[in-house]
Amino acid sequence: MTEKDVRYVAELAHLELTDAEVQRFLPQLDAILKYVQKLNEVDTTRIEPMAQVTFAETQSPPLRADQARTGLGREETLVNAPEHGGGCFKVPKVIERE
């Protein structure tokens, strides 16, 4: 891993790392990534990947009845918002006017 990689991944993850953080994370992430290379010792030819443990590969999860349910009300939902108004979440302007 290089410093450029760290900055690129931070950008993908929407993290604005300081220069000091980049310098600190680089050797740490590099050491972890070197360690996980260990997995290459394992032959995984024709081994199915496992994404969940609840259901056997051939089984599909049971679906609930398609019925409307009441969720959280608007007020309860907005109470934790950093900024809201008119019953909506407020975000910085994303569309510029001419």
């Binding site: 993850a13 929407h14 790392l17 994370f25 910085p92 994303v94």
Partner: peptide, 24 residues
């Protein structure tokens, strides 16, 4: 702007280990 808000919020709100794991 919006994107800058995401990034500044996340950098301020998360501690080092959380950032490390998100990065990884």
């Amino acid at each position: 702007d919006l994107r800058d808000m995401y990034k500044k919020t996340r950098n301020r709100g998360f501690g080092a280990e959380v950032k490390r794991r998100i990065m990884l």
